[in-house]
């Protein structure tokens, strides 16, 4: 997979338009059991994932619980230590940093470039801190400001950007509604002027009408501040609305990647097909023609040999499906599929 993908990337004339490129990223967890933890099992939560994120681009990551999408996000941010692989970040100052190898000082630069917005705004904001302190905290940690006054100015800018008012500065999280709390979370992430936002299910806890406002806000700041997003969600409608590219994950592997129009209107991998056909469409005239997949998700501790989807696949399996892990292949310009049956 890496070879074909990096070849492709070399061919790309617009290489300088790449903000982040992830190569062969792996995150394995060790799980021990038995006497003195003698039985060690590996959980391959993220297994050999490569992709590149362009400037001003959103990649939507979809998949069901346990597919590794959140772990992928956290590993890319190096909140979790990667097992192996490369994560190359091109900063706003045109410096290239390998996040996997970065030392402490360099990590500070990375933190300034990449910020994260969490799913549950209730638990990601410290209830004992005022909004001013929450949004201002990144400046203290990263030593980005000289004076209190400068910090306050920047906090004000960030709050204004997300539609909050200056008088909100002195208030505490419990005084805000769910949607407003998520705005505070976004303001905190934006405060240090990053180039990438990692959004992990940012609207899952919100009602649809509030969700619509937050999604509009995110798209506006993406345009205004020229940001790149990695948008993780299980809600396929939301991901389609937000993303130029989609990555579909299954048991730690990317099974399909490419332009969202192509993937939504012409999914190729059997898993993507069944996933999209299960989506309840808010339109009673459009009854879903569901492609059913058998059985439950296999345990990531003990994934099936060969293609990880082969235990549930509805296509006729051939030898290759059972033996070899299929690499991502480009079947059409900008449409990558990991299935030996699709060429």
């Amino acid at each position: 997979m890496s070879k074909t993908l990096s070849n492709h990337m070399k061919m790309k004339k617009d290489q300088e338009n790449i903000r982040l490129s992830v190569k062969n990223l792996k995150k394995y967890f060790k799980e021990t059991s038995g006497f003195m933890g003698r039985n060690v099992e590996l959980v391959k939560a993220v297994d050999d994932v490569s992709f590149s994120l362009g400037k001003n681009e959103t990649i939507g990551v979809v998949g069901e619980s346990g597919c590794g999408k959140t772990t992928l996000g956290k590993t890319v941010m190096r909140i979790l230590e990667p097992t192996s692989g490369k994560i190359l970040l091109n900063t706003r100052e045109n410096e290239t940093i390998d996040i996997v190898e970065a030392e402490k000082e360099q990590m500070k630069k990375v933190r300034k470039e990449m910020q994260m917005v969490f799913q549950d705004p209730k638990s990601s904001l410290n209830p004992r801190m005022s909004i001013k302190d929450i949004v201002g905290e990144p400046f203290d940690i990263l030593n980005l400001v000289e004076s209190k006054k400068e910090k306050e100015g920047k906090v004000l800018d960030a709050l204004e950007r997300v539609g909050l008012k200056p008088e909100h500065m002195e208030r505490y999280p419990h005084e805000f509604s769910g949607g407003q709390k998520q705005r505070i979370g976004i303001a905190r992430a934006l405060a240090v002027n990053p180039s990438i936002l990692l959004l992990d299910e940012p609207t899952s806890a919100l009602d649809v009408s509030v969700q619509a406002k937050i999604l509009n806000l995110l798209n506006k700041i993406k345009r205004d501040l020229k940001l790149s997003f990695i948008f993780i969600s299980h809600d396929l409608g939301v991901v389609y609305h937000m993303s130029e590219k989609i990555m579909v994950m299954y048991l730690g592997k990317v099974v399909e990647f490419g332009d969202s129009e192509k993937i939504y209107h012409n999914p190729q991998h059997p898993y993507t097909k069944s996933l999209f056909s299960s989506l309840p469409v808010p339109d009673p005239r459009e009854k879903r023609k569901r492609i059913e997949i058998d059985g439950d998700l296999p345990s990531p501790k003990n994934p099936p040999e060969g293609c990880r989807f082969n235990t549930r696949c509805f296509e006729e399996l051939n030898e290759e499906c059972k033996k070899r892990i299929p690499p991502l292949r480009e079947i059409q310009d900008g449409h990558w599929v990991a299935c030996p049956q699709k060429r």
Binding site: S209, A212, L215, N219, Y240, H241, Y264, L279, V281, D283
Partner: peptide
């Protein structure tokens, strides 16, 4: 206000 997969809108109404 529900994002649709049938057509892509620039802005969602709410």
């Amino acid at each position: 206000s529900v994002p649709s997969i049938k057509k892509r809108e620039k802005e969602l109404d709410f």
